[in-house]
Write a protein that binds this DNA or RNA. Structure first.
Lengths: 109, 109
DNA sequence: ACGTTACATGGCGAAATGGGCATATAGGAA
DNA sequence: TTCCTATATGCCCATTTCGCCATGTAACGT
């Protein structure tokens, strides 16, 4: 039972690692942009409006989590979404946000 | 366009706040347990195996994000899942983990 | 060769997070 | 009242995250 517990902990840790990669506004913005097709780092840097090195690190986080993949072409790197299931993420999060808003308004009214 | 940008940033921040609440192994473990029905803090404390105050704080994070709700009964607090869409989360995360594992094995073999 | 452009990485400080201990609060029992 | 139990909160410390700056690296043009 102890071994099982350990394994279950590892499972949760692995899941949390994915969620962690999604837990930053800039990274969500990047993923959103990549859903429309691959983008180079410079485009994403413009989009996010942060330092290029910052964006590069965000992309490294997403890549490490297995959420995006990259392709080098000459001097540039193009990133793309690697998984197909993110739509469910957005939907769920939007649902939560909507319900929170509703609850908040009920609390006021 | 600047206003739109600001609003879009707020959107991403709100989404990230939800993802952040999901980005911890203990909180995922708690949510998993709550999917089977409401639990009191003491049960969850046993489950997670951390200090009671730590678990209490994790629950506060989940509540703040609107993911769980609580109900007081005498001395005890019972928490329950408040949203219905978490199954999609698990599924998506599991998909990512599976693909990552596959990619890793291909990289080896 | 040199310079430029695109990107990645190291380092540093600031801020956020996490965890346990101690304490506060509050309900129930005696 | 006093004690005990269940939970929440404050405090402190360790760790992590985040952002920018500076620098490294690599491809391309001249």
């Amino acid at each position: 039972m102890k071994a099982r517990n350990l394994q279950s902990r590892k499972r949760y840790a692995a899941r949390a690692a994915i969620a962690k990669a999604l837990a930053h506004p800039s990274r969500l913005m990047i993923l959103d942009a990549l859903e429309a097709g691959e983008r180079c780092v410079c485009e994403l840097t413009d989009l996010v409006g942060a330092d290029q090195s910052t964006v590069s690190k965000h992309l490294a986080v997403l890549k490490q989590a297995g959420l995006v993949a990259d392709r080098k072409e000459g001097v540039m790197s193009f990133y793309r979404v690697k998984v197909c299931c993110l739509a469910g993420f957005w939907k769920c999060i939007e649902t939560v946000l909507t319900e929170n808003l509703k609850a908040h308004q009920e609390a006021l009214g």
